[in-house]
């Protein structure tokens, strides 16, 4: 079996009396797309937050990435080590264009300068198939899909080992979700390990090799996606008990 590139050991996060993530242990293997599903408020984004340290770390438990324990590291150190993420935001930098957004990431996260940074920025924008004629348009004026492409490109510019995507399909139309599906599969085939939080179940089932479902901050089920969604507890909690 492939060694896990990323794993957590009993991570928990509390906000006063509220336990947002409770005793979650899971592992992501190198080269796979690992899906995370769960109803609203189930702790998916909080799990991403505590794994990357932005804006807060774990209350207890351990996060291991690429053979090192990273749960006490500064967020940018985690990102520079190769664990990069996107946010559920409209645009990362609304008043920077695509070229500038990528140059900032390439310089600070990728450690590149001058022409080399520009070359990398262009290569990554090409890789996510970002329209060349739209690269000088301010991010705030881009379409929803272009903003998603830019966000993925921005996270990829430092050539991460694992890319964590937080609901990349939200706000997309069906044809755009199909494009995103193809893009994620392409990136994965190129060797990128992807951790994917998503509400659009069809996308999760289509691209994920393994799936984990959270509910009230706890793991409800994990394993083969088609088997996971058939588990009674998952159907009850996530799908509202309507599936037969």
């Amino acid at each position: 079996m492939t060694e896990p590139v990323l794993h957590t050991r009993s991570v928990s996060k509390s906000f006063g009396g509220l336990q947002a993530v409770k005793d979650v242990s899971f592992e992501v293997r190198e080269g796979e797309i690992f899906g995370i599903a769960g109803p609203n408020g189930s702790g998916k984004s909080t799990l991403f937050n505590i794994m990357t340290g932005i804006p807060f770390g774990v209350t207890s438990g351990e996060v291991h990435f690429d053979g090192q324990r990273v749960d006490r590291w500064a967020p940018h150190r985690i990102a520079q080590a190769g664990l990069c993420r996107t946010f559920q935001k409209d645009a990362e930098y609304p008043d920077l264009d695509a070229n500038e957004t990528l140059l900032v990431s390439a310089t600070y996260n990728g450690g590149l300068r001058g022409a080399e940074a520009t070359r990398r920025a262009n290569a990554v924008l090409d890789q996510v198939e970002f329209d060349r004629s739209r690269r000088c348009v301010l991010s705030r004026e881009l379409s929803v899909y272009e903003k998603k492409q830019l966000m993925i490109a921005s996270a990829m510019v430092s050539q991460p080992k694992v890319l964590m995507l937080d609901e990349p399909a939200s706000g997309l139309t069906k044809p755009e979700i199909a494009r995103l599906d193809a893009l994620l599969v392409d990136l994965n085939r190129a060797g990128l390990t992807i951790l994917l939080i998503e509400h659009v179940l069809s996308l999760l089932l289509s691209v994920s090799q393994r799936l984990m479902v959270l509910n009230y901050g706890e793991i409800l089920a994990q394993g083969d996606p088609t088997a996971v969604v058939k588990e009674p507890a998952v159907i009850e909690a996530y799908l509202g008990g309507r599936r037969k």
Binding site: Y93, V104, Y108
Partner: peptide
């Protein structure tokens, strides 16, 4: 617009969270 530091100032002004995440 052109310098690395200048772009980083604009990035910080627009999204401190993301800017600090990429090491600014």
């Amino acid at each position: 617009v052109r310098s690395t530091v200048g772009r980083s100032l604009r990035a910080v002004g627009q999204n401190q969270e993301s800017a600090s995440l990429i090491g600014i």
